[in-house]
Simulated scan of single mutants.
Amino acid sequence: MADTFQLELVSPERLLLSRQVEMAVIPAAEGEMGVLPGHAPMVVALRGGVISVRDNGAESERLFVAGGFAEVLPDRCTVLADEATPVAEVSRAKAEQRLAAAEAALVEVTATDPIERRDLAMSKVQSARAMRDAAGAA
């Protein structure tokens, strides 16, 4: 088994990362998920959170994603992110504004709205909280 795999992180605006890495931890919808070379094939939904990349036994990069999907194969992991930004570029003020807007939109949702609308509103709040937390840790 190889010691590395190809990690690609793509957002609608640009390709943020495309290189060999030892490990990546991605914010899967069900929880944090470690990806190593030889991982079983799967497709997972992502929630807002931070992708942590490890090389030479240490964390080498951290990237915030607002959601999306990841395709994991034994020799490659492709992340298709709704939005992605290196954590060092995440603004705490922008994250706070996004959180306030998302919480205000969630308040507008009623119990009679379709479940999809309620889920989307809650997902935006959770993603904004993850962005704020990432900005605080940068």
Rank of each mutant, 00 (worst) to 15 (best):
P86F: 06
A105W: 06
C77V: 13
D82Y: 04
R129E: 15
V65W: 02
L46S: 03
E116Q: 13
A70M: 06
P74F: 01
M33R: 05
R118T: 10
G34F: 01
V65M: 04
A29V: 11
S91N: 05
A66L: 07
P74N: 03
H39Y: 06
E61G: 08
A137N: 11
S127E: 13
A100R: 13
L7M: 08
P41C: 00
D113I: 02
L16P: 02
E22D: 12
L73P: 02
V43P: 00
A2Y: 05
D3I: 01
R132M: 15
M42D: 00
V43E: 00
G38Q: 04
D3P: 00
V90R: 10
L63F: 08
R92S: 08
C77I: 08
V35F: 05
L106D: 10
G57A: 07
N56S: 14
L106T: 08
G38S: 04
A24L: 06
A121M: 12
C77F: 06
L17R: 12
T4G: 06
A135R: 02
A100S: 13
D55Q: 13
T4K: 14
R129Y: 11
A134S: 13
L16H: 03
A100V: 08
P27K: 07
V50P: 08
V72D: 00
G38P: 03
S60R: 13
A101I: 01
R132D: 05
R98S: 14
R132L: 15
D82G: 07
S127W: 10
D82Q: 10
S127H: 09
G31Q: 00
G34M: 01
E108S: 13
P114E: 13
A88T: 15
M23N: 07
S60I: 09
A102K: 11
A128Q: 12
